[in-house]
Nucleic acid binder design. Sequence first.
DNA 1: TTCATCAGCCGTCAGCCCGT
DNA 2: ACGGGCTGACGGCTGATGAA
Length: 307
Amino acid sequence: MDMVNDSEVTQGQQTDLGDTGQNISVVHVAIPNQAVQVQSVIQPTSQPSVIHTTHQGNTIHVVTEDEFEEAEGKKRREILNRRPSYRKILNELSSDTGGISGMTKITEEDSNSSQEGMEAADGASNLSTSQQQNVVVSATSVAAAGSTVQYQQAGGTVTVVPTHTIQIASHGDGIPHTGVQTLTMSNTGLVTSPGGATIVQYAQGPDGQFFIPATNVQAYQIATPTSLPQGVVMTTAMGSPQGVGEEASRKRELRLLKNREAASECRRKKKEYIKCLENRVAVLENQNKTLMEELKSLKELYCQKDA
DNA sequence: TTCATCAGCCGTCAGCCCGT
DNA sequence: ACGGGCTGACGGCTGATGAA
């Protein structure tokens, strides 16, 4: 493969491509040390079907068709093999392009789109006697008898059991829990009735545990939370073959839920990535236009001087 | 109004990569 | 080796739009 370095090629220069057996004239406008806008137009003078070039920095590589196909194939395979995440691409773009506007660096923090859910779930651990609680857990699968789903967080544990009892095992807030409290359970959260959002009244039993009075009992569904804060653990107590099946289905639900969220996040990043690319195109087109105009005026200046 | 088409969104699956 | 995250691909759903 022959290399044609743009520092060696000037407008109209005839360049022999050696082992390609081709002679081409190269019209090459090269602006050294410009990150963008090196334009090259390669025109074959003989009839070699296609001239393929690849660019590396300021260097143009002229390759044979076979080499080109091979390289393209390899490139395609590499792209198929592993496309870096949009976050990576965006970060690379933003560090590469430095001053280019419209580039937003994605950080771990701003990729955390489920902050609100976390905050809502956070509230569940701080159960107090006087305020309404938002316990956020979504509903998908019905817990069978014998299984216990725990929603745990540092300092407090809310246990939901399929006998429709909500047990608050340990608040960790030091507040004595007496009387009837109201839990607002949204359909985006931990426990819902089939009808959606439900106000569940629960009371504290003599053993200190809270329970839902029988009048409130419905087929509450229990599933994994849409987003659990760090340190939050959902567990199920199992012990039977039936439980194994439930465990599997619970795991599946959790996996699907996480994947759902991941897909949503991925789409969000993809959109952002495309926006950034569009911005970049606009910026580069602008720069291109400016440089072309500059080149044109310099050419005119040069022609005037020559004449 | 009804129907067809299209675009956009969402959920799911599969496969790859990466950290443990 | 395994589990979890990421993302392309696919199919279904829904709303907008235009033609009949």
